[in-house]
Nucleic acid binder design. Structure first.
Lengths: 183, 183, 183, 183
DNA sequence: GATGAATGAGCATTCATTCAT
DNA sequence: GATGAATGAATGCTCATTCAT
């Protein structure tokens, strides 16, 4: 039982790193098995298929982040404070595990389409905050801008255009987002 | 010569659409050949390889856009006006060919790494404008925010979260970007 | 001991049904284990291998049937009565367990080749009867016809071409066989 | 074009022999490719899949035989003569290509289920003859007996229990079948 | 006796690319 | 220029079997 769980986690870690580095289609099950030091067939003891594995990893972490985001922003009043919380949370998440973050970003489009609608979804959480505040002309446009600012600068850190950690930019990012949303 | 050129363009159009729909790795040379009504081998008369084809298509359109962006922003003075030009250009480009836009977005990371550094590059163009203006605390961070705002909202239009055309949002996007950069 | 025996029989029943339904190669050890509610490894407590299991099941039932056939036909005199016994026995065997019958039919070619020659064998039993009678021109040809008539009509019942039970046709089958053998 | 057709036929011949010898599941695409002296991928230029290949080969030959059987028996009057034709045709078919015959026999159950009902089917052809004659008590039972006599003795030849060619037994088989049907 | 994770060879199939026609 | 058959390595996945617990 214990051994099985450890192997599953080993597979997850190795997969995420390989997917980010070489792409989902560029990473074979054989690659993953070699990176883990397990046999190919072993992967299928823990995941139904490569595709199911990606979906499982994505859903687990994306839902957990969305849930945390919803709770953290619910604890404070006013868009400024909520945005501050969101930015801090987002940056910490990126800095703590940039590889996981990159993986989630990489597969989000394909996976979000297949995710059950009732699960917590970061985009909807943010949109609700902006809409409740009411200052933004078009809440969805403002939501897009907020997410765009965070995501693109995270990518800039990953690509070396910005010097990390991303958390160093929390105050500036918060100010920029508020500037955009209330423009 | 003319017939050859027509075939080459037919391959480009079909490829871009298929790549966006099913992914680069999810689209086989056979898929492309079938969509074009040509034989598989014919593709290799016009492109050295599938990979070279992608690179060629990307470079051609990305460089052209970056070039246009550089010229359009050079015609006016002041960041406000330059941003207005940039936003209008970006939105028009998206609306005129969302499929091409989606394709460029999809392959940008992988392709930008391989692109010769001396070719015009939209990110550098924008960064130069922001840096010259001087109002933004960190020019690269502001550049990321600008690009993020535009790209993410374009994606929102593509995914149906925002009702298109993207050009309808030019004034708001311009205001939001200026709000972010000068915050 | 008792529990072990019960498990072994459970495995046999489940295997026979699965083999008939999905073929020997189409049925995995995992399929069998799931159908029995046991673990995959448990099967190997009772059988040396999948192949050995098939051989064991086949031999057990085929030999038992051949033995019974030899005994039942030895009790009466004259080919007519012997054929009548044989037909009745065959039909009862089919009707009592069509799944087992189908399984034996399915694997007979492969298994008969590997069966020790000294074990009772239905074909030899029948051939001996026909040869002793002497009326058939070629005893082996007549043996083939007898077996063919029984087996093919059993298959017709299984496939729904004939309405069962097969035992309803005992008199007609007996007459047809005698008609063929003495023609 | 010519080269392609030749390769396809080479694949068919090699497949049939291998399937009969080692079973459908026991024969890998690699086995077939090696036996043909072609690459594995080449097989897929000519057949959509291994399964489709089997279906195609079966249908082609089984339908052709059934068609010939229908025509040959339609040329003469009276069940005796029709049976004589049928037996002669069946034996010739076996003797001319015992390997093909064995293959058709081996896959018939699985393939007949999937064959379009409107295609000629040997069983239905024979059943119609028997039913029209009217002498047999149960036409389907008699049909089963006829087919059983022919098929089982063909198998006996294949297994060496009867010395071939099967055509040597045409008169006796005809007599036996008539004996069975009119018993 | 029972378990089920682990194995690794084997499978059918796909695919970018080549080349004789 | 165009074709499409041929290639063969690579892919995701299955499976009978083993073995530590």
């Amino acid at each position: 039982m214990k051994r099985g769980q450890a192997t599953k986690e080993k597979i997850e870690r190795a997969s995420i790193a390989l997917f980010l580095e070489k792409g989902v289609n560029g990473t074979s099950v054989r690659d993953i098995a070699e990176a883990c030091g397990i046999a190919e067939g072993t992967l299928y003891r823990h995941f139904h298929s490569k595709e199911a594995m990606i979906r499982e990893i994505f859903t687990e972490h994306y839902v957990a982040f969305s849930q945390t985001l919803a709770e953290a922003t619910a604890e404070v009043e006013g868009l400024e404070q909520q945005v501050a919380r969101m930015v801090a949370l987002f940056c910490r998440f990126y800095d703590e595990d940039p590889i996981l973050f990159g993986f989630l970003l990489m597969v989000q489009h394909r996976q979000l389409e297949r995710m059950p609608a009732e699960l917590p979804n970061a985009i909807d959480v943010i949109h609700a905050l902006v809409a409740r505040d009411g200052r933004a002309g078009d809440a969805m446009l403002a939501t897009g801008s907020m997410i765009g600012i965070l995501v693109r600068n995270a990518i800039f850190v990953r690509h070396g255009r910005l010097k990390g950690p991303l958390s160093d930019y929390v105050p500036q990012l918060t100010r920029q987002i508020m500037g955009a949303v209330t423009a």
